[in-house]
Write a protein that binds this DNA or RNA. Structure first.
Lengths: 168, 168
DNA sequence: ATATATTTTCAATAATTTTTGAAATTTCGG
DNA sequence: CCGAAATTTCAAAAATTATTGAAAATATAT
């Protein structure tokens, strides 16, 4: 397979992959494109490569920057802004985990705390099932939260080695 | 907070949560409803509780069954079918991990194998960056694959205890 | 067997999300 | 400062995804 074709397949698959994870196709494609680009790209480069509009490009680049996956790069002597993606995949994963934890897991845990304190007699089957379910989710969620915290602080080399000793 | 209100909030949040994970709102809401129901429910119960159409209910229940999260339950003396959700959250998580691994991670790893074998001189910066990126993703992906396999086989009690010793 | 209850399907419709493109704003060299 | 280049915004349009509801298929009681 030629590089051009391989690149296109990667970008397109990464985009499809993203949609299963609540990330929009274009954002994932821009990320993929930057991941495989040796040099930082401009907005125009990205527009052209992916044949998408200026507005769309701009919004999704900004979103990638919010997620901490892409950086603005200044190139001296150039007026335009350049963008580049973090290439270390372990850092990328940690960054995504960090953001999703903050945006999704933590608010969910807060809600569960409130819901667990529902009024009513625990001898009532309805109440008991509700409280038990919420408690179960909360327990696992809290555990996941702690585990992810540690993972975010971990080095890849350490992670890969040590984890396999536990999960044996 | 009263049970009715708490239940509604849980169902609605679980639905919103689902959309961040590529699961449609209704499917997640039906799942949430079944999770907090002490007894199995019929399609009509679900339709009424969530005020959604028969077709929608039917399709999403079927999808939940495909995911292995909901079971058909036969109740003797009843003509209608009843549905109930697995209440053990650890089992639920393992089931979801198992399915997503099969549906997403494994196909992605297969693609990466193909893409890594791209033609071209590795001294070419374009080629080198591409291959390095793909290799990096593949390496982490393969590792994740193995780790998830072990997790799928694990007991919760073991998982919760042992994992915290590593991630300390 | 037949009638009736129940489940499933799927084309049409509705809702939501994404994308466009042109106008407004900002940035920066001269 | 001025003017051109670059970036950002956002209302409208397009594309995608979810939902409805009625008809078809299936299952079951009598």
């Amino acid at each position: 397979m030629k590089l051009t074709e391989a690149k296109q397949q990667f970008i397109s698959s990464w985009g499809a992959f993203g949609t299963h994870w609540g990330i929009n196709r274009t954002m994932a494609q821009i990320h993929a494109l930057l991941l495989v680009s040796p040099e930082p790209l401009t907005q125009d480069d990205i527009m052209e490569e992916l044949t998408i509009s200026r507005g769309n490009t701009n919004m999704n680049i900004r979103e990638l920057i919010n997620w901490g996956l892409v950086d603005r790069v200044l190139i001296s002597g150039e007026r335009k802004e350049f963008f580049s993606a973090e290439k270390d995949i372990w850092k990328v994963v940690k960054q995504i985990v960090k953001e999703r934890k903050k945006r999704e897991l933590e608010p969910m845990l807060q809600l569960l705390d409130k819901l667990e304190a529902v009024e009513g007699d625990k001898k009532d089957k309805e109440v008991k099932t509700f409280v038990d379910t919420i408690s179960g989710i909360k327990k696992l969620g809290k555990q996941a939260d702690k585990t992810l915290d540690t993972m975010i602080r971990a080095e890849e080399s350490w992670f890969v080695g040590a984890l396999m000793k536990v999960f044996k």
